[in-house]
Simulated assay, not measured.
Amino acid sequence: MRQPPRHTVRRLLATDAPSFYAAVRESIDELTYWMPWCTKDYAMSDAEAWMQTASEMWASGAEYHLGIFDAATGAVVGGTGVNHINRAYRIGNIGYWVSSNRTGQGIARFAAHQSAVLGFGELGLTRLEIVVLTNNTASQRVAEAVGARFECEARNRLYFQGAPHSACVYSLVPEDLR
Rank of each mutant, 00 (worst) to 15 (best):
R2A: 07
R11C: 04
A17H: 10
A17N: 12
P18G: 07
F20Q: 01
F20K: 00
R25T: 03
W34V: 01
W34M: 09
M35C: 02
P36A: 14
W37R: 08
C38W: 11
K40G: 10
K40Q: 09
D41M: 02
M44S: 11
E48M: 04
E48Q: 06
Q52V: 11
Q52F: 14
A59E: 12
A59H: 12
G61M: 13
A62V: 05
H65G: 02
L66M: 05
D70H: 02
A72E: 10
V76G: 02
G79R: 10
T80F: 02
T80K: 12
V82E: 14
I91M: 06
N101L: 00
T103H: 11
I107L: 08
I107A: 05
A111V: 03
A112E: 09
H113F: 14
H113E: 13
H113S: 13
A116I: 09
V117K: 08
L123I: 15
G124T: 03
T126N: 08
R127E: 03
V132M: 01
T134D: 04
N136P: 11
N136Q: 07
Q140C: 13
A143H: 08
A145V: 06
A148D: 05
E151R: 00
C152A: 11
R155N: 06
N156V: 09
Y159I: 03
Y159A: 01
F160S: 14
Q161E: 12
A163C: 10
V169W: 01
V169S: 00
Y170K: 02
V173F: 12
E175Y: 06
D176P: 00
